[in-house]
Simulated scan of single mutants.
Amino acid sequence: MSYSVGQVSAFAGVTVRTLHHYDKAGLLSPSDRSDAGYRLYGDADPVRLQQILFYRELGFSLDEIASMLKAPFPTALDHLRARQRQLTPQERFEVFGEITFDLSYATEAELKWARSDGQREAMARAAAHTMEDWRQLMGEAAAWRAELRAAFDEGEPSDGERAMDLAEEHRLHVSRWFTSCPPDMHRRIADDFVADPRAFALVVPPSQQRPGLAAYTCRAVHANAARHTTGRTDSEEHR
């Protein structure tokens, strides 16, 4: 299926001028042209645009983005990308918005943890999710982000019950949708939130972040993990 520059502009929320700029920069060239010479984008083009927009949010230059987009992706990510291609472009932007799993960080994680059973399970389960699965899990994630930002903005301590409960909710979300996430694993995930902005951007999109929120989330996760050393939490018992 082909999409005009106006259609892509509308469902991606970018200007036609931006799309023309990406075309001239060699980042996103239309797959085809109409008989009248107008740009026509194919099904794969909006996926690439979503990546470009995400990287731009993180502050990467167009040259850096071009280099990242040329990098080969591991097999598991190819499967996930193939699953996402079953959605229409409008559905992809509706469901995922700024969040996308076909990223340089996901690639590095796949290479780093290629022998990890948890990583293999997470990628396999992600690739198998239906669109309705993604709608549900992304809806849960959006509601959780709103609660996290509220707790942070209201000055709740990161080691307080409210913040720890939110950390526990995130841990169980990962376990429910991707792979078993014991407290020690959750600590390592949270450490990446502080060490690599791309990791936290997979949880809280850049436009929704606040200065210090990644570190706050990391501390809450560590506090919740420490809470597990004294016994199982209520949420764990009712999982």
Results as ranks from 00 to 15, higher is better:
V14F: 06
S61R: 01
R115P: 04
E140F: 08
A167C: 09
R188C: 05
A151R: 12
R162H: 07
L80K: 03
Q136N: 07
E91N: 07
G97W: 00
A82P: 10
W113G: 02
A214M: 01
E98W: 03
G37W: 03
D153L: 02
R125V: 14
E121T: 15
G59F: 03
H186T: 11
L172W: 15
G118T: 08
P205F: 05
A44W: 01
E94H: 03
A124D: 15
H170Y: 15
L49Y: 11
W113H: 02
E64C: 00
G13H: 05
Y41R: 07
A82L: 03
L213T: 13
F178G: 11
R17E: 09
L27I: 04
I52Y: 10
L40T: 15
E108Y: 05
E237D: 02
E98K: 00
E110K: 03
R81W: 04
W113E: 14
A226M: 06
F178R: 00
L27W: 00
F11E: 06
E161G: 02
F11K: 00
L58Q: 13
A150E: 14
Q209I: 09
A66E: 10
P211R: 12
Q119P: 10
R198L: 05
F96S: 09
A214N: 09
A199W: 06
A223I: 03
K24Y: 10
V5A: 03
P30F: 06
S158D: 15
T230V: 05
L172G: 13
S67K: 07
Y55L: 13
G37N: 14
T230G: 05
P211T: 15
S31G: 11
R135H: 11
E132F: 00
L166Y: 12
I65S: 12
A122M: 12
C181D: 13
A71V: 05
R187A: 05
F200N: 07
A190S: 14
L19A: 01
A226G: 13
F200H: 01
L69Y: 07
S67V: 06
R83I: 07
L166I: 08
S61H: 10
E169W: 02
A122E: 14
H79V: 10
L62D: 15
